[in-house]
């Protein structure tokens, strides 16, 4: 697919970074304010989609990114499971146990493993949404050519 005009491209360059940072903020503060892994992940995916749409994707480059995104997605999900299982090994040895110290309620580093879950679920959701978008473009171009 083709890119858009230079005005759109420049505006996207300015905005995409900020959207990305906002997504990270939503994910990291998931245990303090409304939001969390799912919402923040979709915001991050939105910034990637914006860049892809405005600049237009060269088809071969996108194919490479598709495989990279799959790996990121699988890796993030497996890390969620690893944290869940590590409840077995530490603390009271129970699956899905919140084994890290809780800290002070309201601080950024608190609530044990919950921020880690948020971060990995956020990564996974961002990769998943972006991969659906990419696959809809890639496979269409592949069938044309």
């Amino acid at each position: 697919m083709k890119g858009m005009t230079i005005i759109v491209k420049k505006t996207t360059q300015l905005i995409a970074g900020m959207i990305f940072m906002y997504g990270i903020y939503v994910i990291v503060h998931g245990h303090l304010t409304p939001g969390g892994g799912f919402a923040g992940g979709v915001v991050i995916a939105g910034s990637f989609i914006l860049v892809t749409l405005s600049n237009g994707g060269d088809f071969m480059k996108l194919l490479k990114e598709e495989s990279g995104t799959t790996i990121v997605e699988s890796l993030a999900t497996i890390l969620v499971i690893v944290i869940a299982v590590s409840g077995f090994l530490f603390g009271t040895k129970i699956f899905f146990n919140n084994f890290l110290p809780k800290g002070i309620v309201g601080h950024l580093v608190s609530a044990g493993v919950l921020p880690l879950y948020n971060i990995f679920v956020g990564t996974e959701v961002a990769a998943s949404i972006f991969i659906i978008f990419l696959s809809l473009i890639i496979f269409k171009e592949e069938s044309k050519g």
């Binding site: 495989s67 799959t70 790996i71 699988s74 890796l75 497996i78 499971i81 869940a84 299982v85 699956f95």
Partner: peptide, 16 residues
Amino acid sequence: VVIPLAGAFLIMIIGR
């Protein structure tokens, strides 16, 4: 539950 789920994602990473 854990082993098949983890296995699926290991296949997606290492199988490449």
